[in-house]
Design a protein around this nucleic acid. Structure first.
Lengths: 227, 227
DNA sequence: CGCTGCGTTGAGCTTCTTCAACGATCGTGG
DNA sequence: CCACGATCGTTGAAGAAGCTCAACGCAGCG
């Protein structure tokens, strides 16, 4: 496999010369994970970070009584688990492959050296961390200031946008996982889907979604209406 | 005022030579804010970031119906509002001075130049962003997986630690602000303080707190007991 | 065929918020 | 110096949102 080719398509390595990409490629090791296999665990010593090549990885926290909050789902091209590279040394959450996934692993020590004499790489990394902060801000806002129907409406609109703003698309994750991402439980999510259907906001058929009343969803997402 | 002297005491500028500190000092402008004065607003164009010299600044989101979620409170030595420097161009939240505050302002353009040929500064900035990510993780975990009593218990234990693990200390913010930080409202917070007092976990006297049953609080914080 | 994981539905309950009222404190202006 | 208003904190009663527990349908797969 040509590691450099993969790296060249990733935002994090934007603007690097071929030679620089080679230097990066040299420190990479390729790892494979089966579906549901853990990548790292909360509190583990973090000896490097990862980049998703194929598949998906969820990063999540678990409460003592087993409830799970998904903090982020990473897909191809996205780096994750960078925190222990730069601050402290432990992963602050769990990571698990959602599909069979291929990851690149970048050892902390080697990567820090590269960053040191590679300002573009440093800038890209700061951009990546900043984007993550922004996404976390949105999640905090959603969890604290919106009710579940509002969060779900936001997510559906987001998915629609991601698919080119069309009104029909497939849920990219199982509904139970969606519940975990929205900070709720499958039962509650299911009930809200039912209500949304009754109010003619959406149509649901398994994982297939049709947005019927976009404006209504936007009002919900903004907290300007209720179900 | 000697800007360089202030900078030299800040983590973000750790490991910089005197000459490098001078270069940084050259781009700083000093700003003063009165208590309750906004520093920036959600959606504003972000033309740089800030460092707290004295006073405190809260960064928060507001819901359509006016509820406020404090995401972070920054004190002396802490940089904030870096996101638009590295990713996108708008602040993703609001910033407001909680006390009369003196801030240093670093214009985006100038600062990026400095980072470019200053690897230590880049590393420090990545450490700072990573730490922020870690703190946000904790907040997300708390909001989603813990009930309010658990969040309050965690906060009290955190405050105690910050004060050298002693059992008596002062709340550093008003209770209504604490409610906003814990993702709840003053009424709920007040009731929980009452319950905690009745269960002999703490003693409250205005802003003065005494931890009576540390173990009990730890159990609450871990979700292993209820009020 | 039967198992297992996922999704749905119902009933009851817990937690938290809303709305309203009231006490205490503090700073300001008369 | 006192009175007043504003802000903050507390308390009560009622209601809403979401969770728990339990049951069940359904699809996929060994």
């Amino acid at each position: 496999m040509d590691i450099r080719k993969h790296l060249s398509q990733v935002d994090l390595f934007n603007g690097l010369s071929l030679q620089q990409l080679d230097e990066v490629a040299r420190i990479v090791s390729v790892k494979e994970y089966r579906k549901s296999e853990p990548v790292f665990s909360d509190g583990d010593e973090g000896i490097g970070f990862y980049l998703v090549i194929s598949g998906r990885v969820k990063v999540y926290k678990v409460s003592p009584d087993g409830k799970e909050q998904i903090m982020h789902i990473f897909g191809p091209g996205q780096p994750f688990a960078e925190v222990p590279v730069f601050e402290g040394s432990r992963y602050p959450a769990n990571g698990e492959a959602m599909d069979h996934s291929r990851l690149f692993f970048f050892p902390k020590k080697d990567f820090v050296k590269l960053i040191h004499d590679n300002p573009s790489l440093a800038m890209n990394m700061m951009a990546s961390l900043s984007q993550r902060l922004k996404q976390f801000s949105h999640l905090i806002e959603a969890l604290s200031l919106k009710e579940v129907p509002g969060r779900l409406a936001s997510y559906l609109l987001y998915l629609s946008d991601k698919n080119g703003s069309i009104d029909q698309f497939e849920l990219d994750i199982a509904k139970s996982q969606l519940a975990s991402f929205l900070g709720t439980i499958p039962e509650t999510l299911s009930r809200i889907f039912t209500k949304m259907t009754n109010k003619e906001l959406v149509r649901i058929n398994g994982p297939h979604i049709t947005l019927v009343d976009r404006t209504g969803l936007e009002d919900l997402a903004e907290g300007e209406s209720k179900l």
